[in-house]
């Protein structure tokens, strides 16, 4: 049949690829590259890595932010990479790890959400989305053992519970809900300690944005893989927010003054 030759007949795009078009999966081709596995360090130097991303809950929902640097060993491979993406109308996904597989998995996840919606006529529940993502991360495990780690953070607004929710993952596809905040990537630990210190329950949007930026600036301060706001080139972290009204981009115009204030504070 010219229209569709596959055998899969469900609502999941990811499963459709697994059954009928495995060559289009992001990770399948990474499973058989033993020569690269010989040295994880060499792989880390050969492949760009996306670094710090974070999320925190606030009064209206969740704020998600990521710096803009991709790092290849000790080199900056990109200053403008984006790691935070809208997954669908009510959820946002961000990833740290090997940039190629990360971006491919984000794309696959976006199509998965949309595909399910179109086939079934309904959107998945937030838990359903989070679980689907866990299965995708699990598929990447063989590649993760070779150093091509992919670690997402997934946040969304749960329309049923009327609140924002944060999910973190491990390389085995383990899915854990965080109630306040989370950060991952090479600067994740540093960002988490800032978040931990200043996080308050039900913060305003402004306070949450400022804290997200501060955590990124602190991460960039210590971690060479993470960049802070680049005032010279005008490159700012990507920040998105999800509330009961859906996903919103936080514009550079809003991020710029906050960044300038933070950097002025660093100058003492």
């Amino acid at each position: 049949m010219p229209l569709f030759a596959g055998s899969y007949d469900g609502a999941s795009f990811f499963e459709l690829l697994r059954y009928d078009f495995p060559h289009l999966l992001p990770f399948q081709h990474l499973h058989n590259v033993p020569q690269l596995a010989a040295s994880e360090r060499r792989l880390m130097e050969a492949v760009p890595f996306a670094t710090t991303v974070l999320a925190l809950r606030c009064a209206d929902g969740v704020v998600m932010a990521g710096d803009r640097q991709a790092t290849e060993g000790f080199e900056v491979s990109s200053r403008r990479i984006e790691k935070v993406y809208k997954a669908d109308d009510y959820s946002v996904i961000a990833m740290a790890g090997a940039a190629g597989p990360c971006l491919e998995m984000i794309k696959l996840f976006q199509v998965e959400m949309e595909h399910y919606h179109k086939i079934e006529g309904e959107t998945l529940a937030l838990d359903g989305k989070a679980n689907k993502l866990a299965q995708m991360v699990k598929q990447n495990l063989p590649a993760a053992f070779q150093g091509l780690i992919v670690i997402p953070i997934f946040v969304g607004y749960d329309l049923r519970l009327q609140q924002g929710r944060i999910f973190k993952y491990d390389v085995t596809g383990g899915r854990y809900e965080e109630l306040q905040f989370y950060a991952t990537g090479s600067g994740g630990k540093e960002a988490r300690s800032t978040l931990k210190k200043f996080f308050k329950v039900a913060m305003s949007r402004e306070a949450a944005l400022a804290l997200a930026l501060e955590a990124l600036v602190d991460a960039a301060d210590v971690d060479v893989g993470t960049s802070g706001p680049d005032l010279i080139r005008g490159i700012y972290p990507v920040v998105k927010m999800v509330t009961c009204h859906g996903v919103m981009d936080v514009s550079d115009d809003e991020i710029r003054p906050l960044s300038e204030r933070l950097i002025a504070a660093l100058q003492g």
Binding site: L3, F13, L16, L24, V111, K118
Partner: peptide, 13 residues
């Protein structure tokens, strides 16, 4: 459904 699969696959690839 076949049309949605066809379109999503093409858009993805």
């Amino acid at each position: 459904k076949a049309g949605i699969r066809y379109a999503d696959l093409k858009g993805y690839a």
